[in-house]
């Protein structure tokens, strides 16, 4: 048994397993912290910075998905400053690629759109970048539109850590980064892919999706639990 620590989140006393991150503990206790690149069940990246929180006694803010809980810690999940930072994080993600919701498959079922609405992002304070990546429709069942990708790496982590395949990775770096299959091959020709669909199930936006099905029908969240349950069946059976 691992040790238990006690901390407070927004004044509420909670008990947590030592080593767990703040975000996970908050969710277990029904305390909401917005998050985007975090995906329960796989490793944390700490990339999007939407999940920032304050910890009493420190002038800094912390990404809650990669900050482990500690005894006596006092976490604050909401403040004017945090909302300002989160809003910026979402705006920068929106500006990085052409996120035009009205023509996106994920419209209405997009975690980025959801957070933008929640945080009151109604315009961008920076210039948008109009990338022009080619849409990849070569896979029989799935499609990939790099122009919608926010580089959260959920797909990479789930393909590596859950499916155990690692067919996906990032190429180049910085603003040129791109999610690729194998050697930047077209998805339909990527030999390592087992076509399991986990990546499209966890993509928070409209970058990876099941062809021919509006996301409102697929209901991403349900798909995720389906994937996870299949996984446990596999390990039991």
């Amino acid at each position: 048994m691992s040790k238990t620590v006690e901390l407070t989140i927004d004044g509420k006393k909670v008990a947590a397993k030592e080593g767990d991150n703040i975000l996970k503990v908050a969710r277990e206790n029904n305390i909401y912290i917005p998050a985007l690149c975090y995906l329960e069940g796989v490793s944390s990246l700490g990339g999007c910075r939407v999940c920032v929180v304050e910890i009493r006694g420190s002038p800094k803010v912390f990404a809650s998905c990669v900050t482990p809980v500690a005894e006596g810690m006092e976490v604050i999940t909401d403040s004017e400053r945090l909302r300002r930072y989160r809003k910026w994080a979402i705006e920068l993600l929106l500006a990085e690629r052409p996120h035009v919701c009205s023509v996106c498959v994920a419209n209405g079922n997009c975690e980025l759109q959801q957070l933008a609405t929640e945080l009151g992002v109604d315009h961008l304070r920076v210039d948008r970048k109009w990338t022009n990546y080619e849409l990849d429709l070569t896979h029989e069942r799935f499609a990939y539109d790099p122009n919608r990708c926010i580089l959260c790496t959920r797909c990479i982590r789930v393909c590596d850590e859950v499916e155990g395949v690692h067919a996906i990775d990032l190429m180049l770096r910085g603003k040129n980064s791109k999610v690729i299959f194998d050697l930047d091959d077209k998805w339909g020709f990527a030999e390592s892919c087992t076509s399991c669909g986990k990546c499209s199930a966890v993509c928070p936006v409209g970058a990876l999706y099941v062809k021919g099905k509006p996301l409102s029908e697929v209901k991403k969240k349900e798909l995720v639990s389906f994937v996870m349950s299949r996984r446990s069946e596999k390990t039991i059976g």
Binding site: D160, H166, A167, I168, L170, M171, L172, I180, D182, L183
Partner: peptide
């Protein structure tokens, strides 16, 4: 994984 090798090379 080839994607990892390609990621590092690029």
């Amino acid at each position: 994984p080839p994607s990892h090798v390609y990621g590092v090379a690029t």
